[in-house]
């Protein structure tokens, strides 16, 4: 965790109305997680308790308190993708990925007519089957 970078992020958003979520997003983007040091610094800068900042961080699925070193593939597991076979595909993908790639559930990417769908970073992939998804997992 780079303290200068953290200060810059906090300073960039500090004057906005309701700055906490934008700060948490940028911290997570920069450092891969929002750890205890970051929580302490953010709490101090925003005049909040560490418990309050931790409470917000832990509430949202997007934020992690420890970094994830492995590549992550988010596979949609919501109803529209279920109707197109995502549950069977998810089981297959988890076997395929083993411990090397994290297959995370996501509930809807808004591509509900062309599922099963996945997101890697901000890249979207639709109409997945074992062949296509397997290639994505292998390339990670």
């Amino acid at each position: 965790m780079n303290a200068d970078e953290l200060d810059r992020i906090i300073a960039r958003h500090g004057k906005r109305e309701g700055p906490l979520l934008p700060i948490l997003h940028d911290v997570q983007d920069a450092f891969g997680c929002v750890d205890e040091d970051a929580i302490r610094a953010i709490a101090q800068a925003l005049n909040l308790s560490r418990a309050e900042v931790y409470g917000v961080t832990s509430f949202y699925h997007d934020f992690r308190t420890v970094p994830e070193p492995r590549p992550v593939l988010k596979l949609c597991r919501a109803e529209a993708c279920q109707a197109r076979g995502s549950e069977r595909l998810a089981k297959w993908a988890m076997d395929k990925a083993r411990d090397r790639v994290v297959i995370e559930p996501v509930y809807c990417l808004g591509l509900c007519s062309v599922g099963p769908n996945a997101m890697i970073g901000t890249d979207l992939h639709a109409r997945l089957d074992e062949q296509k998804l397997g290639a994505l997992i292998e390339a990670l």
């Binding site: 309701g18 979520l21 934008p22 997003h25 509430f59 949202y60 699925h61 997007d62 934020f63 509930y107």
Partner: peptide
């Protein structure tokens, strides 16, 4: 930008989220 919480589509929850 939201942070992956479905419930924030509920309007009062969304307002809390906007407030940080």
């Amino acid at each position: 930008v939201g942070a992956g919480a479905y419930v924030c589509g509920e309007e009062t929850s969304l307002l809390n989220s906007l407030e940080g």
